[in-house]
Computed example of a mutant assay.
Amino acid sequence: MTASVDVATSPAGGHALPPHFASTDDAAPKRRGRRIGFMLGAAGVLVAAAVGVLQVTASLGYDGARAEFDAAAASARDSATTVQQELDTLTSVTDVADLLKTADTGVLTVPSARDALTTASTDADEAAGPAKELLTEPLPSADSKPSAFWELFAASDQLAVDAGDLDDLAADLDAATPAMTAASAEVTEAGVALLRSAADAAPAFESAHLSAKNDAVIALRDAASRVPDTMLLDVTTVESLVSMQDAAGQVVATEQAELAEKAGPLQGDRLEIEAFARSLAPGVLLEFDWNQIVNNAGSNGSMGGLTTWWWDDPDRAVIELSNSVAEQWPADRSKALIAHEVGHAISVKCEDMYDSSTQDSIEKWATAWAISMGFTDDANGVWAYGYPPQSYIDAAYGCR
């Protein structure tokens, strides 16, 4: 045992140390606490660094996914716009086709052409179906960019899925366009063919109604003449068909009125005379009127004729004949008088061949033309107007 020392009374001064500085058992826990704190601090730094890396990675990944999504969305919108435009065009074309079919009375058009248009319209409806369905599909949209890295990862995955869906939609839209383009072309071609079938039928229709008034025939010709320039289906296409049909209706109506006026015992002879006159002047549109007295002649065995013609296109004239011409048909004198009147009518094709400034020269020309055609009876104009100059007869040979 060590004795205690009284520092205050010690003769040598100084101080006494305690038996020991610290217990070994007390020092060890303090060193472990510092190591634990250091380790926790280091772990915290590592966690923070890892979170930072995750945040950056997630953010960059989201930006890349968003860029791909935006590109896919833009492509899908462009495809949808193209498909909508093509669908609008097809709808416009089929609407006109429906109007054409509704307006078509069948008076001029060919049934097979109408059937072809109906088939093309049906095909167009089928081609438009997929496009209409695709255009109703809503396009996915992207929300605002999240903040937390786990939200960014989830959003990136969804953007990738949506981008894939948009790519698929764009591909489907692009695939729908060619069918509609082809359908539009098919309907247009069939519609134009229907219209042209009516125009092509116009000449035969005219020939089947020879007694129609000139104005009605000219209206039909004019309407038909505008068709060859038609390349598209629009409102003008329908108007062209309606115009032709209206004109054809007038051709029929005026012919019926003319035949009603010519009805009676002389009708057959009148129609033969009209056909005879037309045969003398091919290419000239002739219209005929009949009366008891014409140009102060027609009674007591006399015959009268009067012709009105127009210099402008088309070549046309109106010949008025007395009933006595039909009563004496087919006598040579009747044929000769008719030839004289046709000589006036055909002058529209040969106006530069004679002097048309006086009535005498006009009548001499018609007489010369009848003579050039071999009609020598004095009813050819010689009896009424005298014999024409040989120069007129020679010129008349060139007017056919």
Rank of each mutant, 00 (worst) to 15 (best):
residue 111 P to V: 06
residue 317 A to V: 05
residue 42 A to L: 03
residue 45 V to S: 03
residue 79 S to R: 14
residue 126 E to Y: 13
residue 282 P to T: 01
residue 89 T to L: 12
residue 318 V to N: 14
residue 311 W to P: 13
residue 223 A to L: 09
residue 21 F to I: 15
residue 146 P to S: 01
residue 238 V to F: 03
residue 330 P to G: 05
residue 374 G to T: 03
residue 213 K to P: 06
residue 141 S to E: 08
residue 232 L to F: 11
residue 106 G to V: 05
residue 152 L to S: 07
residue 343 G to Y: 09
residue 169 L to W: 10
residue 90 L to C: 01
residue 331 A to Y: 02
residue 34 R to L: 12
residue 91 T to Y: 13
residue 314 P to L: 00
residue 230 T to K: 11
residue 95 D to Q: 15
residue 293 I to T: 12
residue 52 G to W: 08
residue 57 T to R: 12
residue 299 S to V: 09
residue 71 A to H: 05
residue 4 S to H: 12
residue 88 D to S: 13
residue 203 P to L: 02
residue 254 T to G: 02
residue 170 A to L: 02
residue 331 A to V: 05
residue 345 A to W: 14
residue 121 S to R: 09
residue 381 G to P: 08
residue 20 H to A: 11
residue 346 I to L: 07
residue 319 I to R: 02
residue 336 A to V: 03
residue 347 S to H: 15
residue 46 L to R: 01
residue 389 P to T: 08
residue 55 Q to M: 08
residue 194 L to G: 12
residue 74 A to F: 00
residue 6 D to A: 11
residue 5 V to I: 10
residue 308 T to K: 12
residue 164 G to A: 05
residue 166 L to K: 02
residue 98 D to N: 10
residue 7 V to G: 10
residue 281 A to G: 04
residue 283 G to Q: 00
residue 117 L to C: 00
residue 242 V to P: 02
residue 97 A to T: 06
residue 188 T to G: 07
residue 184 S to V: 01
residue 362 I to K: 12
residue 87 L to Q: 11
residue 179 A to V: 10
residue 143 D to K: 03
residue 150 W to I: 11
residue 314 P to G: 06
residue 89 T to R: 15
residue 221 R to W: 11
residue 34 R to Y: 11
residue 342 V to E: 06
residue 346 I to V: 12
residue 286 L to N: 02
residue 78 D to R: 05
residue 107 V to T: 13
residue 182 A to K: 03
residue 133 E to Y: 08
residue 352 D to E: 14
residue 165 D to M: 09
residue 47 V to I: 01
residue 98 D to S: 14
residue 183 A to R: 05
residue 340 H to S: 08
residue 7 V to N: 10
residue 161 V to A: 13
residue 330 P to H: 07
residue 371 I to Q: 08
residue 156 S to G: 09
residue 143 D to E: 05
residue 162 D to I: 04
residue 190 A to N: 04
residue 240 S to Y: 12
residue 284 V to A: 01
residue 400 R to Q: 14
residue 187 V to K: 03
residue 106 G to M: 06
residue 54 L to H: 06
residue 34 R to D: 04
residue 16 A to W: 03
residue 332 D to G: 06
residue 220 L to Y: 03
residue 253 A to I: 08
residue 45 V to E: 04
residue 90 L to D: 03
residue 346 I to Q: 09
residue 201 A to M: 05
residue 299 S to F: 09
residue 194 L to S: 08
residue 61 G to Y: 00
residue 158 Q to L: 08
residue 270 R to A: 07
residue 208 A to W: 11
residue 354 Y to M: 09
residue 111 P to K: 04
residue 59 S to P: 03
residue 97 A to H: 05
residue 45 V to L: 13
residue 342 V to I: 14
residue 376 T to W: 10
residue 54 L to M: 11
residue 13 G to T: 07
residue 152 L to H: 06
residue 12 A to T: 09
residue 293 I to P: 03
residue 185 A to F: 02
residue 373 M to A: 05
residue 279 S to M: 00
residue 330 P to R: 07
residue 190 A to Q: 04
residue 306 L to T: 06
